[in-house]
Simulated scan of single mutants.
Amino acid sequence: MPKKLVIVCLINFLIAAVMGLVLRYSSIGDIGLNYRFLTHAHSHVAMLGWVYLMLYTLIVHYFIPDKKPIYNRLFWVTEFAVVGMMLSFPIQGYAAFSISFSTLHIFCSYYFVYLIWTHNKTESIVTSILLKASLFFMLLSTFGVWCLGPAVSMLGQASAFYQIAIQFFLHFQFNGWFLIAIITVFFHLLKIKDSKLFRQFFSVLVASTVFTFALPIQWFAPHNVLLWINSIGVVLQLAALFTFIKLIRTKLYTLIDKKSKLIVCIYSFAMFCFVLKVVFQLVSILPEFSQVVYEHRNFVIGFIHLLMLGVITGFLFAFILQSKLVNYFKTLYIGVYCFILGFVLTETALLVQGCNYYFGYEILPNYYLLLFLFSLLLPLGILFILLNLFKK
């Protein structure tokens, strides 16, 4: 795996983490920037500069044997789009320049899908099916973006149409493209064979991904039918988790056997977060709780970070650690443990305060200061991992 490209992805992640830290500081002091604009920059750089480009690098590395120059050029054009969003969003939010760079990124992703669909060569039916499914969901998610313009012009940003379009993009990016692409690489490393169990897992996973989109629709266009559809999706997701564990149980022991304790730790962390994600979504079957999640921002941010930082980043870190790009020096251990500790502390603070809001209790003493201090550990951890890569 090209070390230079991994470093670029991690630098993007570090910048996104610093932006997140500034957002946390805004609750205790003046940051001199528009909070909403910076939030857009933070989310776009984290999703498209870190996760998207890291998955790009992994997919090309593992599934494209003939690595033509076009893949390297496309990576840098996509990175140019990310840098453009990184600089324009904090200044102007959604406006001419930021929208132009976002559009460029979407077209780069379309070309990436075309290249991978055309050139991918894998002997495994399992990874072929999963890879194409993840790319399909990436394409599908962008329909939400194309609906934003008509939604604003016809009904405005406060409309259900506009909000559902945003949720459509986010849902199928996170739960479709990102998560299934992660599983693709994971199953490739585990050498999972085609079987009836895998086919069941894949069918249930795709169905649950589609059905659970009913919950964000329910937030903006309430209907009892949507709650039932989400409930079916959540139950299917639980079934997918059980089949997932069955598929990987014996293979995972082989993968981590005689590996560093750090690799075992990061895989355990990612797997635990994956299980926790499914458990939290299972609770959304209760109508009262599903509405509470939307109304209390702590729960929303906590869940997004659970998926983004816990599950997706947890697995991405594990893949990097297995790639032989790192040295097992103190910097790597400090980096990984700092990141995990920062994640656990911030998620705990968000959850506890969210529960306090729900039950009508007072805010935690020094809550915003503690959240900022805990958040310091996240960019610090990424920085140490980067330093380790530079030393190799």
Rank of each mutant, 00 (worst) to 15 (best):
G233Q: 00
L386H: 07
A133Y: 11
K68P: 10
T118C: 04
I229M: 09
F137I: 02
R73Q: 15
L325S: 05
G149V: 10
C355T: 12
C147E: 15
H296V: 09
S128N: 13
V300K: 00
T209I: 13
F384E: 04
G335S: 02
I99Q: 06
K246W: 05
L306C: 01
K193E: 14
Y110Q: 10
L155A: 14
I164E: 08
W50N: 15
S231L: 03
F211Y: 05
P2G: 08
V126Y: 14
L307K: 00
I31N: 14
I245C: 05
L139H: 07
Y253K: 11
L373A: 04
L378N: 09
F169M: 14
L316V: 02
K132D: 11
R24P: 05
N298Q: 14
L115V: 04
D257H: 12
I28E: 03
L130S: 14
E288P: 02
F172S: 05
G335E: 00
C108E: 02
K132Q: 12
L252T: 12
L350K: 07
F317G: 01
F174M: 04
V235A: 11
L341T: 15
K392P: 07
V145Y: 13
F97P: 00
I266C: 01
K121P: 08
V22A: 14
L286A: 06
T103F: 03
P287A: 01
I263T: 06
V185C: 12
H119C: 03
G32F: 09
A96F: 12
L383G: 03
I28H: 03
L10Y: 10
Q353M: 02
V210S: 06
K67S: 04
Y337H: 11
E79F: 06
F242S: 14
P379F: 06
A17C: 13
K246M: 08
A160K: 01
F201L: 07
V293F: 00
K277P: 03
S26Y: 09
A81L: 06
A181V: 08
L345V: 06
Q218F: 10
A151I: 13
G314N: 03
P287W: 02
F289D: 01
L130W: 12
P216Y: 05
W76Q: 10
L87W: 02
P222M: 03
E295F: 11
Q353S: 00
L135W: 02
P2L: 06
V264L: 13
V6K: 08
L306T: 01
